[in-house]
């Protein structure tokens, strides 16, 4: 396999890892709103993701850094084209990150309520917007011959990309619900199981629509069958997860939504390859893994860095999940 393909796959894996990991902490963030009945329950939810959310977010930073190193043209065009929505995501993520740490640093109800609002919006907005922006890659953007974005917000927010946003939002919520079912005890756990059942069908429907739309609008043909397969897996796992959680096997339910997120990502990036950002204006503007990439030398260097260290990262991040594997409940949250 050529190095550019290796790096395309790695960037895709990093994005998928991000959606699958931060996806559930976005979901938990959204659940703090209505699903949690009082401050204690809200704190239980926040504490289930407390040790891990920051490490999850690094998957996105690494995806972006890897894109810069391996496909500088993709990095340059994408983030300048997505100027305003990306700025909105950054503001949301900045406030959300602070909320987890700061909400307990001052004892006042109004202070906590404000940060709770931030946690909800700061989780929902990026969960939706990342879907829009990633779907935008598969849809393509109006680019001129030197790959500069020549469109406006209407080219970023289209019915197709909005559906992409709905998919990541719904999947994050479902995934987060499974995580809560897996990580809590008592009433929260019971409620999470029930909620999962209600979310499964609409999520599966959104995914199915999105995958069909993705594959039919992309006629590059190279890996279409893989995209179809991945889409089918995603739908099947969402539906299957519903049955599994009904049997009380929350760990496996979490695995199914994890696989579903990964499969949607695989369908999206699979349909995108070998382009990285197709142009809907000047065809010469289309960015592919070849014309967007760094030199072979840079890719080789980065491969030598990634090959030993990606497994190390996976190992210690897994260790953290293992360390904090036990369930918590309201009885763990002592002081108000």
């Amino acid at each position: 396999m050529e190095l550019v393909t290796v790096w395309f796959v790695l960037v895709a894996v990093l994005w998928v890892g991000y959606l699958a990991l931060e996806g559930f902490d976005f979901g938990v963030g959204m659940l703090t709103r209505r699903f949690a009945h009082d401050d204690r329950e809200r704190r239980v939810l926040i504490n289930t993701i407390g040790p891990v959310w920051d490490g999850n977010e690094v998957w996105m930073i690494t995806a972006v850094g890897a894109t810069f190193a391996a496909f500088p043209e993709w990095y340059a065009t994408a983030w300048s084209a997505y100027y305003l929505p990306l700025a909105a995501i950054l503001v949301a993520l900045i406030l959300r990150g602070l909320a987890f740490e700061y909400r307990a640093k001052h004892d006042s109800d109004s202070w906590r309520r404000r940060w709770d609002g931030v946690i909800f919006l700061g989780s929902a907005a990026p969960a939706f917007l990342w879907g829009v922006l990633l779907a935008g890659f598969a849809q393509g953007l109006p680019l001129d011959a030197r790959h500069d974005f020549v469109g406006g917000l209407g080219d970023v927010f289209t019915p197709y990309t909005l559906l992409g946003g709905v998919v990541t939002l719904a999947l994050s919520l479902l995934h987060g619900t499974h995580y809560v079912a897996l990580k809590t005890v008592g009433e929260l756990r019971t409620r999470a199981r029930a909620l999962s059942g209600r979310l499964a069908a609409p999520t599966a429907l959104a995914i199915a629509g999105f995958v069909v739309w993705t594959v039919t609008q992309r006629d590059t043909g190279s890996v279409t069958w893989a995209a179809w397969l991945a889409g089918a897996v995603a739908v099947a796992f969402v539906v299957g997860g519903h049955r599994i959680i009904a049997d009380g096997r929350e760990g496996w339910a979490f695995v199914t939504s994890f696989v579903a997120v990964a499969a949607v990502g695989a369908a999206l990036f699979g349909a995108l390859y070998p382009d990285v950002l197709p142009s809907t204006a000047d065809a010469a503007g289309t960015l592919t893994v070849d014309n967007a990439s760094s030199t072979d030398y840079t890719l080789t260097v980065m491969t030598w860095v990634a090959v030993p260290f990606v497994p190390v990262v996976l190992a210690y991040q897994s260790w953290v999940y293992w360390t904090f594997r036990r369930r918590i409940g309201v009885q763990h949250i002592t002081s108000p």
């Binding site: 690094v58 930073i61 690494t62 972006v64 850094g65 890897a66 894109t67 810069f68 190193a69 391996a70 500088p72 990095y75 760094s294 840079t298 260097v301 980065m302 860095v305 990634a306 260290f309 990606v310 990262v313």
Partner: peptide, 10 residues
Amino acid sequence: GAPLAMEALL
């Protein structure tokens, strides 16, 4: 991009 990606990963 290389040192930035290394910073993220390492």
